[in-house]
Design a protein around this nucleic acid. Structure first.
Lengths: 140, 140
DNA sequence: ATGAAAATTGCAACAAAGTTGCAAAAATCT
DNA sequence: AGATTTTTGCAACTTTGTTGCAATTTTCAT
């Protein structure tokens, strides 16, 4: 068992769940292949029943192991900040690849300003940028 | 015909489409009742066939009259910046209401910094914030 | 204004995405 | 090892979104 797997096992055990093959496979797919659509995820673990995949994701969301993040107007599945550092996404409108980037330092300040101004208490946020990636802007 | 309707008519005519009742009704629903889920939109224009609503939205997206924006892991339909000024959304995790807020001035600077640093050319972006609204943070 | 041509809508059937109940299989706990 | 609990897979179903085609509406030239 690798260190990541034992971290996963711990998260599950702490909440009273066991580390089963479907759960491990889904976790590994998300870890190795990054943000995935439900389709992509399902095709990568196709030995596992569709219902089970949905249920694993449901559980992972409850336990904050994985989360759904907006991609355009659909969504992607991704491990939470406990497993990969907090970041945002850029998606190329030409080649459709997704690039992750760190959150800018100035973001926090801005977020606080906005929150104060509107009276709300932020607990989570998403920032998604769309455009041409470095490769595609040369060609186009 | 009001001024907004004639603007809509113009958008459609310019692209070779006519202003029909289904198109006008969908437009008005989005204009009057803000960001709506497909369900909400459909129930507000229920005299119109479901297929037609989907086709109107498809057309509106092509002509940049309306757009889908991510809301959690579903999506909302909303008029584009041509009809309502550019803004972002805050969604309360308690009462689920959505509040629109203007884009902070510092956002542009931050966006440019990020873009330069990563070599991409941004053409669109979304910023969604989640948390407790001013009403709910008092109660909770 | 009227009729032919083109665009638009509604219907029905379908495809895809997501959910639920239940019995079989696997994991857990003495 | 055996009883108990949890987890999985299957089948049936609901919801969401799509497609082809005939009927209706709009457009445009006369």
């Amino acid at each position: 068992m690798t260190s990541v797997e034992s971290t996963l096992a711990l998260h599950l055990k702490n909440a009273g769940f066991s580390l089963t093959e479907p759960r491990l496979k889904v976790f590994k797919a998300l870890q190795d292949d990054g943000p995935l659509s439900m389709q992509e995820l399902y095709s990568r673990v196709s030995s596992i029943n569709r219902t089970t995949v949905y249920r694993v994701i449901e559980l992972f969301e409850e336990l904050k192991i994985a989360q759904r993040v907006a991609k355009g107007w659909k969504y992607h599945l991704e491990l939470t900040d406990d497993f990969i550092p907090h970041h945002h996404h850029f998606t190329c409108t030409n080649c459709h690849k997704t690039i992750s980037f760190d959150e800018p330092k100035s973001f926090d300040v801005m977020l606080e300003t906005v929150a104060n101004h509107n009276g709300f208490l932020p607990t989570a946020h998403t920032l998604e940028i769309e455009g041409l990636c470095s490769d595609c802007r040369v060609l186009a």
